Computed example of a mutant assay.
Amino acid sequence: MEAKVFRRTRIRPHLETRMRMAAAIREFFIRRGFLEVETPVRIPAPAPEVHIDCVAASGAFLQASPELAMKELLASGFEKIFQLARCFRGAERGARHLPEMTLLEWYVKGEDYRYMMAETEDLLCHVAGCLKKGPRLSWQGRPFDLTPPFERLSVADAFLRYGGMSLEEALEKGCFNEVMGLEIEPELGREKPVFLYEYPASEASLARIKPENPAFAERFELYICGVELCNAYTELVDAKEQASRFREAAAERMRLGKSPYPEAAVFLEALNHMPPATGNALGFDRLVMLFSDAPDIDHVTAVLPEEL
């Protein structure tokens, strides 16, 4: 008990920063005309992501992301929505991972992934300003500069710069994720945040494919000091295409020996009515970790799962 009390007392300044950051985020979105929403944490059918394992909960699942429910709201006529959502992922624990985490997720009708890059940039600068930090900050002795614009780097260029091979070679050899995780990601955002954009179509998931170049998806991730902060894209609104991708992902999960999920039929039906939009899922815990100069995610979490 004494160790828990000492840890929690020691990290109080980080928790205070966390509170101020949540308030700054709400202020940012409210000023821009967004509606804050809350969607169910327990859902009947998650998206069948190959590398994300959902937690079963009495015949349903704890959400890994509020994405499907929020897109149903877009299909119902909402135009600009956000939430700070509690999300759950199985077998995820480490210096930057928690089995229960907080995601900031937001969606904008009628815009695309390039619009979302600019809005994400504005959000981070706003939060830093509310904390009276920046534009020059540091995380664990590594300085970074939030002065806009942030760097934009395509996935193809990142492979040539840091991966020691072309993107095409990595895809052919089946080592895309390995090279990304071990060689490229640690180098990203060392001095300035970087948007890594235009992932190969095989990594599109729920993102729209570029109409002018179907080899790539309109998707990006943001990195600061080698830490991945968000996953964003122009949304795929073709229900038939999304259903096909879900079937492929479900088959791959089965091939890997992972548990199957029920079909997300309600979401796929709603997708028939969803307007063009862009969305972003940003790891709030990681952002707090960076902005409070905490060494790991445990230092910005009031109660750890191991303490219960």
Rank of each mutant, 00 (worst) to 15 (best):
L131I: 04
I81S: 03
R253F: 08
E92F: 01
F88C: 01
E218C: 07
D285L: 08
L167F: 02
E79H: 06
E79T: 05
E105P: 09
F176C: 00
A57Q: 09
H126W: 12
G77P: 07
D298N: 05
E191Y: 15
R190I: 13
A75P: 00
A23S: 14
T278N: 04
A239Q: 05
E36N: 01
F284I: 06
L104T: 06
A85R: 02
T278S: 13
D53P: 03
F246D: 08
Y162E: 05
K4N: 12
L146T: 01
A85E: 12
R86P: 06
P200A: 09
L304V: 04
P275F: 08
E252D: 10
G257K: 03
N280E: 14
L206G: 05
F291N: 10
R86W: 13
E111R: 10
G257A: 07
R93D: 11
L62Y: 06
F88R: 01
H299N: 08
E2N: 11
S205A: 15
K258S: 10
R219C: 01
L160E: 13
G129M: 10
R86H: 14
P295W: 13
A281Y: 01
M289T: 09
P260E: 11
D122F: 13
E79N: 06
L35D: 11
E2L: 15
E221F: 02
A128S: 04
R247Y: 13
K210H: 14
C175D: 14
D53I: 08
E203C: 06
G134Y: 05
C230H: 01
V50L: 12
C230D: 11
A264P: 11
P211Q: 07
K71L: 12
N231T: 05
A24G: 08
W106A: 11
E168I: 15
A270W: 13
E169F: 05
E105R: 03
G94T: 00
E307N: 03
L256E: 13
E212V: 12
R32C: 09
E183D: 12
P13W: 14
D112K: 00
A207Q: 02
R286N: 11
L137Q: 00
A75Y: 07
M70K: 07
E241R: 07
L188T: 02
E27P: 06
F176S: 01
L68Q: 05
R245M: 10
I297P: 04
A270H: 05
L146I: 02
P260W: 06
S244G: 14
A207D: 03
F29I: 00
A69K: 13
V127T: 01
T234I: 05
L268W: 04
K173Y: 14
L137E: 01
L167E: 04
E119A: 07
G279P: 01
A95K: 06
K173H: 10
F6P: 08
A251T: 09
F144E: 02
